[in-house]
């Protein structure tokens, strides 16, 4: 059955994610209010400014519905600001209203200011996902959040690390990246999210 993915469109690079999903033959809808959540099979939370998106989640009554959908197994992929909003713990910013769900600690902007933004070749090794390990994945890190190396809790699988810190993680139905796969033209990670986390999510345990 054809899947529809919601893309949180409060602020940030949501259009780029929709382009990637479109190129993979998946339909996507912009999510700006709770009504937009009806009928979606998964959600992407894009990069942008996490403080801005957080305020809008509260303002437009999306925070609680999203928490409950994700707790109940809705597949979600958060990149950069999206990762921050999915983190259970934040260094210095723990009062930022957010969705949570990933049992780990994230430090905002911890890779530095914009002049420290960078690209790096990432080696992603996921058992059974040979297409991802065939060649390096270009990680684009922009004022990126850092997943604290010793802050990864129970239930979180680290799928890729760079310079000793996790940069791609999964906990059940939740996938988080501190970089921006939507800016590279490399669709492998979105494809993997769709075929391994979204597909089968409705039918119980297959997502693991």
């Amino acid at each position: 059955m054809k899947k529809t993915i919601g893309v949180l469109a409060l602020q940030g690079a949501f259009a780029r994610h929709m382009k990637v999903l479109e190129s993979l033959g998946v339909s996507s809808v912009e999510v700006r209010e709770p009504d937009n959540l009806a009928g979606i099979d998964g959600l992407v939370i894009p990069g942008g400014e996490s403080t801005t998106i957080s305020k809008m989640l509260v303002r437009w009554n999306l925070l609680e519905p999203l928490k409950s959908l994700i707790e109940n197994g809705m597949p979600v992929f958060g990149t950069c600001a999206g990762l921050i909003l999915l983190a259970d713990h934040l260094v210095n910013w723990d009062n930022l209203p957010r969705i949570g769900g990933l049992n780990l600690t994230v430090a905002r902007n911890a890779y530095g200011r914009q002049i420290d933004s960078f690209e790096a070749a990432l080696e992603i090794n996921i058992p059974g996902a040979s297409v991802l390990s065939e060649s390096p994945f270009t990680g684009v890190f922009i004022r990126a959040p850092r997943i604290v190396a010793d802050g990864v809790g129970k239930g979180v699988e680290v799928l890729c690390s760079f310079e000793g810190c996790p940069v791609l993680v999964r906990q059940g139905n939740i996938l988080g990246a501190s970089f921006h796969p939507e800016l590279t033209g490399d669709n492998r990670l979105h494809e993997w999210f769709l075929s391994n986390i979204v597909t089968g999510a409705g039918s119980g345990k297959r997502a693991g």
Partner: peptide, 23 residues
């Protein structure tokens, strides 16, 4: 092919502008 970080690339510059969209 590179190792380590490639800083301040065109993609990271335009990328920050992308992150500011819708704001």
């Amino acid at each position: 092919t590179w190792s380590g970080r490639q800083s301040s690339t065109w993609r990271t510059k335009v990328g920050l502008a992308e992150m500011l969209k819708g704001g």
